[in-house]
Amino acid sequence: MNIRNQLAANDGRRRLKNQIMCAFLFLAAIVAIAPLVSVFVYVVQRGYQAMSWDFFTQLPAAVGSSGGGMANAITGTMVLVALASLIGVPVGICGGLYLSEFGANSKIASTLRFGVDILASVPSIIVGLFAYAVVVMPMKRPSALAGGFALAILMIPTVARTSEALLKLVPVHIREAGLALGIPRWKVIIFIVLRGSMGAIITGIMLGIARAAGETAPLLLTAAGSQHWSHGLDQPIASLPVQIYTFAISPYDEWQKQAWAGAFVLVLFVFVLNIGTRLIIKRPTIAKD
């Protein structure tokens, strides 16, 4: 009888503990997405308030006067991302191809895989220091080129790892079919594997661009910032993240409003890229066996 009571009490305790812990797990999920909701609501709300057509067409307004925009920063970010893609995309894709096609069991490939992971986790400000020493110092001034160089380094690991992972999804028998026809391996890789998984490659590029577009720290050191139009690739250039930073920490109300508008555009851009990649990956054209 006594044992029975004890068991019953024990059972109650276990059930209670179960309920408490399950509730905690549920709560954790809510707590985790609360900041996302908050960030999104604030960025959309405050950004939208400060948004106007001028934002996309005008240069930043001087202190004290209202209005103005970030036209130079938006184009600046486009230029920087384009420069970064020029270096980062080919190198990243070559890395991804090498790892997926020749990286099955070689020491060099596994070292490389490790290196790519480490490069992805190097703090972006450190990449900024590197680009500062390699490009800014010899040129004696911050420039769009230096900024593009830094962003390229940050982009490479993302492009390489994504394209590796997705290229590996191409079934082996497709490669075998090509080889069985006597097609050289390089042609099989380029014209069958690579072309067949264009979606994969584009996904990698989009994620790389999303990462590069939002980076701020390395640009502070390499591209600096500017309130004007850029006069050349060897000149300092404005960028959206740096402009947001400069305006956010300024004491002026008007500038802070502009910072929210900038954040709105940046978040929208990054989200569209990220959601776009998901749609591409989910598309059934990429075989999954």
């Binding site: 985790a32 997405i33 900041p35 996302l36 908050s38 960030v39 604030y42 960025v43 999303a210 577009a213 939002g214 980076e215 701020t216 720290a217 993240p241 947001i244 930073y245 956010a248 910072a259 929210w260 954040a263 940046l266 978040v267 990054v270 989200f271 990220n274």
Partner: peptide
């Protein structure tokens, strides 16, 4: 998506 938000936006927020 939390991971996709740029660091500078987190700073602003």
């Amino acid at each position: 998506m939390l991971a996709a938000i740029p660091s500078v936006v987190y700073g602003l927020w």
